[in-house]
Design a protein around this nucleic acid. Structure first.
Length: 301
DNA sequence: AGTGGCTCCTGGCGGC
DNA sequence: TGCCGCCAGGAGCCAC
């Protein structure tokens, strides 16, 4: 699932070759890739020269000087240089110069592209929270944003209006690194805990970038290269496996329809801190399903 | 306003 | 072997 580190990986690779090139031709093979039709995208984008590659949260931005080509990969989107014969046609393609075509493949078809006028950029991204690596994301900001929230900490981190770029994988990993329970009411964090969470978020996202992202499902870079962060995940996708730190069994619960993974021993609920209502429900569901299954899953270990 | 549930979408996989 | 049904989740929408 492309999150900030995966989009940043793509951005860096494209930034090394696209600036200065002209976007010659736009092709839309799947109309659902954009609310704007092919004609509108062509009119807005074709013939413009790439000025820079930028990123805002999980959005990739091709800055064409006054107009932006904005891409969101959502779940399974991939931007690659080489066509993939034998698969469904790319939903969208952009030809910059002979030999530097960019193909947008997207199995689950959740991804989107937009042409955004430069003057409308602030409005387009207006609902997004601060960039994790930007100057606005301070401990004071995080502490204030958490204040009064009754939702689970994990749900808070996934809310792009509070912080841009964190998704399911890096939320679980950052909370493990911060030793904070994902089911806890977000508003119960102390100032030191908020500081710890900020540090853990930055460390985790940076580690993801350093490893060229996570290739758990389908993510690849522009040259089809896989990331490596999935090889050092502490909790995500490791439900039932032993915690790398303490050996306790990593738990997996479903929170807001998302798999949520944590170590009950390394990420305990401190005395006085309350579970969020959604967290209580998630634990109850997990217990019920474990009871129903009642099969010796532990044998895998 | 904040919270949470539902929806979209389809390849891959478990189970029978 | 083959087929059916379920699973994964980012973000927008909606109800409460």
């Amino acid at each position: 699932m492309p999150e900030l580190p995966e989009v940043e990986t793509v951005r860096r690779r494209l930034a090394s070759c696209l600036p200065g090139l002209v976007l010659d031709q736009v092709t839309v093979n799947d109309p659902s890739v954009s609310l704007q039709g092919e004609a509108e995208l062509r009119g807005a984008l074709q013939g413009r020269r790439v000025v820079a590659l930028r990123r805002r949260g999980k959005y990739l931005i091709v800055d064409l000087g006054g107009v932006l080509l904005v891409v969101h990969l959502r779940m399974t989107g991939r931007l690659v240089f080489t066509p993939e014969p034998g698969t469904r046609a790319p939903r969208f393609a952009a030809r910059f110069a002979p030999g530097t075509d960019l193909y947008f493949y997207d199995t689950r078809r959740f991804g989107r592209v937009w042409a955004v006028e430069g003057a409308a950029e602030d409005g387009f991204f207006g609902s997004l929270g601060p960039e994790p690596f930007g100057p606005r994301f301070t401990t004071a900001y995080l502490r204030d944003a958490l204040r009064g929230r009754s939702a689970p900490l994990k749900s808070f981190l996934l809310d792009q209006r509070r912080l841009a770029g964190v998704g399911n994988i890096y939320a679980d990993e950052a909370l493990f690194r911060a030793r904070l329970n994902p089911l806890r009411r977000a508003g119960t964090l102390t100032s030191p805990e908020a500081a710890r969470l900020r540090d853990a978020l930055l460390e985790t996202l940076q580690a993801g970038i350093d490893h060229n992202g996570s290739s758990i499902d389908t993510f690849v870079g522009p040259e089809g290269d896989r990331g490596a962060f999935q090889e050092i995940l502490d909790v995500y996708g490791r439900g039932g496996e032993p915690c790398r730190v303490c050996g306790a069994s990593v738990r997996r619960v479903e929170l807001g329809g998302r798999g949520t993974h944590f170590c009950p021993r390394c990420q305990p609920l401190p005395r006085g801190a309350r579970l969020a209502a959604g967290g209580r429900d998630a634990l109850a569901r997990e217990r019920a399903s474990r009871h129903r299954a009642a099969r010796p899953r532990a044998a895998r270990l």
